[in-house]
Design a protein around this nucleic acid. Sequence first.
DNA 1: GCCAACGTTGGC
DNA 2: GCCAACGTTGGC
Length: 273
Amino acid sequence: MTSTDRKYWLMKAEPDSRVVKGKDVKFSVDDFEAARTTPWEGVRNFEARNLMKEMSIGDKILFYHSNCKSPGIAGFAEVSKEAYPDYTAWDSSHPYFDPKTKQDDPKWFMIDATFLSRAEHFVPLSLLRHIAESAKSDPPDEIAYIGIDGMKAVKAMPLVTRGRLSVQRVSQECWGIIEMMSEKGGWEEMTFGKNKPSTSKRPRQAVTKNPRAKTNPTNNDGDGSEVEGKADASEEPDIKPKKGKKRRASDVDAGTREITAPHRRSVRTKKED
DNA sequence: GCCAACGTTGGC
DNA sequence: GCCAACGTTGGC
């Protein structure tokens, strides 16, 4: 692929432990760094899925920490395998099991993502929001380097305009800005948002003190075993995000279902090809 | 195929 | 833990 084709994305994961159907869906930048390559399973939102289908090998990914104390961009990754059926939808023991999905008609897809680097300076959502809010004026001195255009680009990010989408497009400009911010930092003394950002210059480590869910020891972070590995992309079902589908949100599990979440599950290095 | 009700996401 | 935003369901 040529660099003009390169696309940029943002993908969310939860860095804090949270147990769904007996499994921990935690996937922090630490986990990602250790795993190196991971199948991005569990996306159960049509729009997010469709975006994943557009991804090409080599596309760049902003790795985002979601649903945690300090949400924000924690690292960088790239697409290392293009969309193929998400086999976790067929695994009844899996948090993302979808009984409505048949093997011959996969509904959900995933890509493989390969870790590239941590953000040298964790880029907090609160900062991005702050930038978006003040995009009419000049950037604060601390981050003057992003320029007024940079502010506008941030303001246009789906992350800011519609928080809930777990896979998002990122403009090339935004990619550059976030990358630069990650390298340069500079906002440590600024106050913005209701929460102050961490004053640490290092990206936050995965926080595991969340008492509401303990780390599940059965999550195979180390064993590298693969699931059924049933991942060959058979055909292109070209599913469209029509709403007419009768898909119940509650037929997997009484109340614990999380499958529309961006959550990733445990580390699982999977290397096929 | 519209749209109100419902359920979930996810920041705070 | 609260609750606003918003995606999905499912009746009509």
